[in-house]
Amino acid sequence: MFKPFSHIYIEEEVEDHFRTVQILEKFKSAERIKIKHYKDVFNKRGQNFRIQKLSPKLILAKKKDQYLYPGSDFSPNFDHPQFYYNTLALNCLYDCDYCYLQGMFPSGNIVLFVNWEDFFQSTDEFLEKHGNLYLALSYDTDLLATEAFFPATKAWIEFAESRQNLILEIRTKSGNYQTLAGMRPIPNVILAWTISPEIISKQVEKKTAPLDARIQSLKKASEDGWNVRICLDPILREPDWKDTYSDLVLKLRENLNPDKIMDISVGSFRMNADFLKNMQSLRQDTALLYYPFQKKDGVVSYSESENEQMVHWIRSLLSGWIIDAKIKLSY
């Protein structure tokens, strides 16, 4: 069994940062390697993303510019004009077959930026200039999955508590709600769980929390009073997809109170065409990436008729359980 984080690369500039010290305390047996800049390791040529995912290394670094990025067209903005994301971490503990990160990054290792205060300051400056901000916090990673050694989620919730014009969305495939369970829910934070049918999750969402664990985390968060979002996104046109998604929605209906669900995001698979091409060059072990997708304006997805059929099917399954106004489409 390969062990993650057997080696930790540390930028010299953050070697003595208190957050670096705290993280290293969690991995006392890891070999520590000093580096000048994280890109010297993360961006070097000749890396194999797939092999590195078997035993990822950790890179601790300082982010020095661009703390906010405009949200991608591939992600729903929920009608917020100021939709942005930040990158507290690059790459993810999980290993989903459809994840665009493997087509975007040259490395399967994980970068953690320890200088959160610079991110906070940049966010405050944006709020002062623009008045409001919808910030996707867990975008190129799954922050809640790393909370045990990189507690950024808690820190950002505490930051948002005194900034009511900041809306945070924290999306996850983890079952780690217990790490937040002692916090007081606040109205401008959304906890969002990506939910997939159990058979699909087991096959293509490797290392993620089991479906039941995600649903129980979601249920507990909703009962505790958090704004909770269910993300049926991406819907995957896998064999017997109608039956598998029917079973999934039935399980949601059996376990969750619809009145305690803020909304449900529904969207089919879509991706930058270049990212998919890069992924196909790395992987021949998953049929998911070789579906006869259609390409339009640099984006690959199912055909328009397939997308409409899938979204209509999901909406019909949700009908009568949750009101239509809570169903948000993105495809």
Rank of each mutant, 00 (worst) to 15 (best):
K64Y: 00
D263W: 12
L133H: 01
D118G: 02
Q294C: 12
R253P: 01
H130T: 09
S319P: 01
A160H: 01
L60A: 05
E306R: 13
V21Q: 15
V189P: 01
L248Q: 04
P81Y: 00
Q309S: 14
F83C: 09
Y67R: 03
G175F: 12
T244R: 11
S305G: 07
S196E: 05
L144A: 06
D224G: 00
L60R: 11
N115C: 12
L329R: 05
K295P: 03
A160L: 05
G320I: 13
R19E: 05
G131K: 09
D324W: 09
N255F: 07
F150R: 01
P106A: 02
L289P: 03
S72C: 12
Y291P: 03
Q82W: 15
K64W: 08
D65K: 13
I35S: 07
L317A: 10
S162F: 03
S330N: 13
F18C: 01
Q66I: 10
E254G: 13
E169Y: 09
L60Q: 10
Y177Q: 04
F2H: 00
D263L: 05
P70Q: 07
K57G: 01
E128F: 06
A145H: 12
E306A: 14
R45W: 09
Q82H: 15
Y245E: 02
L289C: 00
N43S: 09
Y98S: 08
E25N: 15
T153Y: 03
Q203I: 14
F120R: 13
D240S: 13
G131E: 10
F105A: 02
A152Y: 09
S281Q: 11
Y177A: 02
S138Y: 04
E11C: 07
A273G: 14
L144I: 03
P239I: 03
V111T: 06
K34C: 00
I167F: 07
A136M: 13
K260E: 12
L24Q: 06
P151L: 06
D140W: 01
P197M: 06
I33A: 04
D95N: 14
S303Y: 15
R45C: 06
E198P: 02
T179H: 00
H130Y: 00
S303A: 10
Y85V: 09
E238W: 14
I35N: 08
S75T: 13
S174N: 09
V300E: 06
R171C: 12
L58M: 15
R214Y: 02
V21H: 14
D297M: 12
G103D: 07
P210H: 10
P187W: 04
D118Q: 11
E25R: 14
Q284L: 12
D118T: 03
